[in-house]
Structure formats: structure tokens, C-alpha cells
């Protein structure tokens, strides 16, 4: 009995240590830190569309146009421009299309809003369909029950496939 209690205690200590280690790891990875200019250029160019490619970001494209755009971003970062200022410059030349994650307040922002709206509508419909019967709903009468049983018996006797009944 004492051995078992000791075992439980050790397990609890191990669990607590594991949780503390996990919390420390998460905290360490999420710590605020300053991006280097190169990391910033990488992040910003990964959010911009290569204008001569299909579905590639400026960071990932090997094209000459993308290389020139990376140079522009690097220059703007070196000049101390903010992320928004750099993105706005690209949007001024190529429209919202050039931003891979389009802003919410634009037509392209529908790509974010439509799935959310569809999800809400779907949840609403599902809730409506699976709602329990209203409290005031009455039990079927004996005559109605008998009628239903008779109908079930008749359909079963026809030996039809289930989906044809």
C-alpha cells in the first residue's frame, strides 16, 4: 500500500515537472525578440505575391522580377519603413492582389469572411435540425401509434430495399 502511494507521488512530481518544462519551452519560444533586418525581409517577402509566377511568394520565386522586388523590400527595411508602409507601396502598384493574405476590408477579404459565414450558417442549420422537441410537444395518441405500427408492418411485408420505402 505504501509502495503504491510512493509510486503515485513520483508520478505526480514527474507530471508537474513535465508541465513546468512544457510551459518554459512555450514561454521561451514565444518570447518577444527583435527580428534582424534579413528576417524581416524574409517575412515581408513571404507575404507578397510574385507578379510573374503562379502561386509563389516573392521570397520563394527564383524569377528576376521577384529578385528585384526583394531588393526593394530590403531597401525599404534599411530605410526604416514599417511593414504597413512597405505593403502599401506594393498595393499601390499592383492592388490588393499582390498581398498573399488579403486585408479584411477589401473585396479580396471575402476569402476570410465567406468560410466563416458558411460555418455559422451551417452551425445554425445543424442546431435547428437536431434541437430536441419543444417542451409543449404532445405524445402521439394510441390511435396514431397503431396507425404508424400498421404502416411499418405493411412496408416491411413488401420486402423493398430500404431506400425505396
Amino acid at each position: 500500500m505504501i509502495e503504491r502511494a510512493r509510486g503515485w507521488k513520483s508520478a505526480r512530481v514527474a507530471l508537474v515537472l513535465a508541465l513546468v518544462a512544457l510551459a518554459l519551452a512555450v514561454g521561451w519560444s514565444a518570447r518577444p525578440r527583435t527580428e534582424t533586418p534579413a528576417e524581416r525581409v524574409d517575412r515581408i517577402t513571404s507575404e507578397l505575391r510574385c507578379v510573374v509566377c503562379q502561386g509563389l511568394s516573392v521570397r520563394d520565386s527564383p524569377s528576376e522580377s521577384a529578385r528585384q522586388m526583394r531588393d526593394i523590400v530590403a531597401q525599404r527595411v534599411a530605410e526604416g519603413r514599417s511593414d504597413d508602409e512597405i505593403r502599401d507601396e506594393f498595393r499601390a502598384s499592383y492592388g490588393d492582389w499582390v498581398v498573399l493574405a488579403p486585408p479584411l476590408a477589401s473585396w479580396s477579404g471575402l476569402v476570410w469572411l465567406v468560410p466563416l459565414a458558411a460555418l455559422l450558417v451551417g452551425a445554425f442549420v445543424a442546431l435547428g435540425r437536431f434541437r430536441p422537441p419543444a417542451a409543449g410537444a404532445r405524445e402521439p395518441s394510441a390511435a396514431e401509434l397503431a396507425q404508424l405500427r400498421e404502416r411499418a408492418r405493411r412496408e416491411e411485408s413488401l420486402d423493398l430495399p430500404l431506400d425505396a420505402r
Binding site: Q68, I72, S93
Partner: peptide, 13 residues
């Protein structure tokens, strides 16, 4: 040379 003017005009190709 650096494609800056093309960029400011929004040239695709």
C-alpha cells in the same frame, strides 16, 4: 536597371 520604375508603374511582364 533595378526595375524600380517598372515596379512603380505596376508592370507584370
Amino acid at each position: 536597371d533595378a526595375g524600380r520604375v517598372a515596379f512603380s508603374y505596376g508592370v507584370f511582364g
